[in-house]
Computed example of a mutant assay.
Amino acid sequence: MGEVTAGLFVPQRQHGSILRTGFHFSRGKWKGQQLKNIWVWQCQAVTQSKSLIAIKNQMLNPSTYSSRIATDIPLYESPGASFDQYLEDKPRVFKAIFPDKRRSQQLNEEEWRIQMLPIQFLFLTVWPVVDMRLRCKSEGKDYPPNVPRNITKVLELVITRWELQGLDNVLEPSQFTLGVKGALYPDRLGMRSRLKGQLEINISFALPPMLALVPEDVRQSVAELVLKRLVENMKDKVNGSLLADYSEFKRKKSNNLV
C-alpha cells in the first residue's frame, strides 16, 4: 500500500513519455497559473509605467496654442480730427476698447490693469489679470511686424505682465506663459482711408495631470476655439465701440472749430 501511495508522487514512464499524476500535475498547473499572473502583472506595470512616462513628458514639454486675427474696414476721417490725433489720446482709446471701469485701472501713462472675463478650458476655469501697455509709434520707428513703414501712426498693444487666478493648485506661475500683441493704424490710399489692425494671442503651459490624458487633437480644438473667441471679441470692440467713439471724437472737434 505504501508503495502504491508513493507511486502517485513520482514520475512514471509510459510509452517513452513522462506522465505526471496526482499532486505533481495539480502543482504544475498551479505554478503555470502563477507564472501567468506574474506575466500579466508585469505587462500591466510596464503599461502603467509607459503611461506615467508619457504624462510626465507632456508635463515637462509645454503645449503651445495661438490665434491671430486681422481687421480691415473703411475709416472716414475729417480734416480737423484725423485718426492719428485720436490714437494719441490713449486713455480714451483704452476706454473705448475696455469700457467696463469695474474691471480695469490705470497704472501709469501707458499701462492699464485688466481683470478679464473667466476663460474655460476643458476642466479648468481661470480668471486672467493682465497689464496692458498702449504705445503710439510713428515715422516707421520700431513698428510691429507686417505694418508698412509708410504708415503715419501706429497704436501698439502689448501685455507686459499677467496673473492667472484660480490655478493655484494646478499650475505654477513658471509653467504658464501668455503673450498678446496687437497693432491698430490708419492706412491711407489717396482720398480713402481704412482702419487696419492685427491681434495675436499665444499661450504655453505645462499640462497638469488632469489634462495630460486628454488627446492632443481635443486639446488643440478646444484651445483654438477659446483663443478665437478672445480675439474675435477684441475685434468686435474695435469695429464697433472704437469707431463709434472716434465718430464722437470727430463731432466734438468739429463743434469746437465752429
Rank of each mutant, 00 (worst) to 15 (best):
G166A: 08
H15R: 15
V4Y: 04
Q44V: 11
E139K: 10
L134F: 10
L167R: 00
R27W: 13
I53H: 12
V258E: 07
W39N: 09
N202F: 10
Q58A: 09
E163F: 09
R135H: 12
K181Y: 07
V129A: 04
A81N: 02
V258C: 02
M132R: 10
R149K: 14
L117I: 07
F123V: 13
K235D: 00
E172H: 13
F205W: 03
W41G: 09
L230W: 07
R135E: 13
S221E: 05
F94D: 02
D168A: 15
D89N: 09
Q48H: 06
C136F: 05
W112A: 11
Q44L: 08
V231F: 02
E200F: 14
V126N: 09
Y143F: 11
N202Y: 07
D142L: 08
G166N: 09
Y76G: 00
L35K: 05
R149S: 02
M191F: 09
C136V: 15
A223Y: 07
G140P: 01
M210T: 14
D142R: 12
Y143C: 01
Q198G: 15
V4G: 05
L124G: 03
G140Q: 06
L124P: 00
W127K: 10
P186W: 00
R68L: 12
S17P: 00
A6C: 03
L164S: 01
W162N: 11
A183R: 02
N146C: 13
L195N: 05
K196I: 01
H24E: 11
R20S: 04
K228R: 15
M59W: 06
E224C: 08
R92E: 04
Y185D: 01
T21Q: 13
R161K: 15
M234S: 03
N169Q: 14
A206T: 03
Q165R: 10
W30A: 14
Q33Y: 10
M116L: 12
T5M: 09
S26L: 14
K252D: 12
R161S: 10
T64C: 05
E139H: 03
R113I: 05
Q175Y: 06
V4E: 12
I201Q: 02
S49C: 14
R92K: 10
A244Y: 08
V170M: 11
